[in-house]
Write a protein that binds this DNA or RNA. Structure first.
Lengths: 338, 338
DNA sequence: CCTTTGTAATGAATCGATTCATTTGTGAAC
DNA sequence: GTTCACAAATGAATCGATTCATTACAAAGG
């Protein structure tokens, strides 16, 4: 069973007493080989511990069996969930997914695209960070298509899978009003992030429609610590002017707010209700379970991978499409009606 | 700049008016090429948009520039942090890291090892799930070494990087006693997991040394929901017999306990103190920040990758070594002295 | 002026699997 | 008995870069 290190196709053929072409056929089109020889070949493979050399395979055949996926931050559970969805679809197509992390760094982003190009991946799933759309178009013209993930393609040059953040923002604020808020606030930023912009816009629309003003607390990023800072700020306001509900642009911020409020004796939801966005696992696992806007993370990854395979296989006839999911509000204790 | 799709080395050579060997040298040993030709070649590469074919490169040269990493669960922030550490080291060595997720499934684990073998990765970082040590030894004998991550190698056949869970357990319980606990409990399971076993053993030793009995709540897994279930159970106990402190085998469980206690009106830390294990981000981000045992996650990944490169480069002279980090207790509000 | 030494450059052979045009073999049909 | 159709098997050519033995050339030494 062990076999010497590095048996090759030729060795298998010799041991099985067949030609190399036949061994190759057993590997790639077993149904075209007579059962007799097929078994002999399989036995030889087993005996020699033969493992096909993927480099040689893809060099000759001209195509690899892999996709590249480039995300903004592997540490964010949102992206690992999306990646798992994509991976499952890739697996169905007998492809493997190479997961890379641009870590919100243009240099790394470019480096990984270089790598994908050298490896001749069949296609790329990407949450773009820097200015890469032009390069992606070039890559497509050279035979490597890509699909934008968690980001709506403005042009019709790409397929994309994203979530309707405006609708999400609207739902969040509508819910807050519904549980009785009269002084809602929005916490988030920077507004250069399309998602923050959209979520705020949705919330503002809903507020305006109800004739309620909305306070704005802008943050330089979406991390936990910012949430805590803003929370400390809000806690110090006089009860008469203090918001009675907060919509945070993501769950990290919301958790920061929650921790600050707990530390400052502001009760949630009695004094202030909170809605987050993303519905990461830890939203529901917080001491006070957090109401949040839930995105179909795994589904996003699946659809993106499906679109990509569609483009890979269909090539000329492919029409780009933009899939937009509508997120859903999941009500929990942090907005329980007072 | 765009260039036709798929320029190859030969085309570059033709355009630059040099031989293919020279172009290859520019790519691999630029210092051995005269500046004049080097520049002409680089210009040609740029003009044609040439991208080297990694399959051809590694087929001929006999070695790839990649490592495989196989973790138990990409969704667990612990592993993504470890992976980031490993990735950084791989990058320093101009290698790329292929991250794969066995998702605690033996089938997937085997499938990814197949893949790594076919891709001829230079080495493998793995948190084993099923019975794979024997296979890993076979793979090493065929030229693909591996390092065990977050798991102590019992044999001296492997390098490994892990954490001293016994010491961690000891520290956790010592801390609880230190803040005044007289009826501590341990929550976790199954005990077939080496880590659970070790953490409990450490805690039990510390308790025994102090002459304090320790209650045991065994769970079938380490997930959040189990923590909540056990929490509900504990909350219902009469105050006189109820534990006054809990050491949870990981942070997920601890967060579950915390949520349950909050819901049942059991105050933390006044009524019950809690210590977790792993110190994931969400431990500190909980409403009541959680005391936890912190592991140097990134460092674990870095050291593991370094050991792997050591073995890859040193081959015959390599001596396997077991790196064991001692975890550190980070005290937070959940164990604040009453 | 010839030889030696060393650096640059060359290009044919090579890595290991796949492909495909060709050959071989088998049974059915006439 | 011969022909035909079709399935199975063959093996040389091929993918694109790297390698390395060889050649070309220049400078230095005698």
């Amino acid at each position: 069973m062990p076999g010497g290190p590095g048996a090759k196709l030729k060795d298998v053929a010799a041991l099985a007493g067949v030609s190399v072409g036949t061994v190759s056929n057993v590997l790639n089109r077993p149904e075209q080989v007579s059962p007799d020889k097929r078994n002999r070949v399989l036995a030889a493979i087993d005996e020699l511990g033969f493992v096909r050399n993927e480099s040689a395979r893809s060099l000759r055949s001209g195509s690899t069996r892999s996709l590249g996926m480039l995300v903004l931050d592997v540490r964010n559970p949102f992206f690992t969930d999306v990646a798992m969805g994509a991976e499952n679809v890739a697996e169905d197509h007998k492809h493997s997914l190479i997961l890379a992390n641009s870590a919100e760094d243009s240099g790394r982003e470019q480096a990984y695209l270089d790598l994908f190009e050298q490896q001749r991946v069949q296609g790329i799933l990407i949450t773009p960070f820097g200015q890469v759309l032009e390069r992606l178009e070039t890559m497509r013209s050279r035979g490597i298509p890509s699909v934008l993930v968690d980001r709506l393609a403005r042009t019709d040059q790409f397929c994309s899978v994203s979530v309707d953040d405006v609708a999400g923002g609207k739902a969040a604020l509508a819910h807050l009003l519904d549980v009785g808020s009269v002084r809602p606030a929005f916490v988030g930023g920077p507004f250069t992030l399309q998602q923050v912009e959209d979520r705020y816009r949705g919330a503002a629309e809903a507020a305006e429609r109800a004739g309620v003003p909305i306070q704005l607390f802008e943050t330089p990023d979406l991390k936990f610590d910012r949430g805590r800072q803003v929370g400390d700020l809000i806690s110090k306001l006089e009860a008469a002017v203090r918001p009675d509900a907060v919509f945070a642009a993501n769950d990290q911020l919301a958790l920061g707010l929650l921790q600050s409020f707990a530390a400052n004796g502001v009760r949630v939801p009695e004094d202030i209700a909170i809605v987050g966005f993303d519905d990461i696992d830890f939203a529901s696992q917080s001491s006070i379970p957090l109401t949040s806007i839930s995105q179909p993370r795994q589904l996003i990854g699946e659809r993106a991978a499906e679109l990509l395979f569609d483009e890979i296989n269909d090539q000329p006839g492919h029409v780009h499409s933009q899939v937009v999911f509508t997120p859903e509000l999941v009500a929990r204790q942090s907005t329980r009606r007072r």
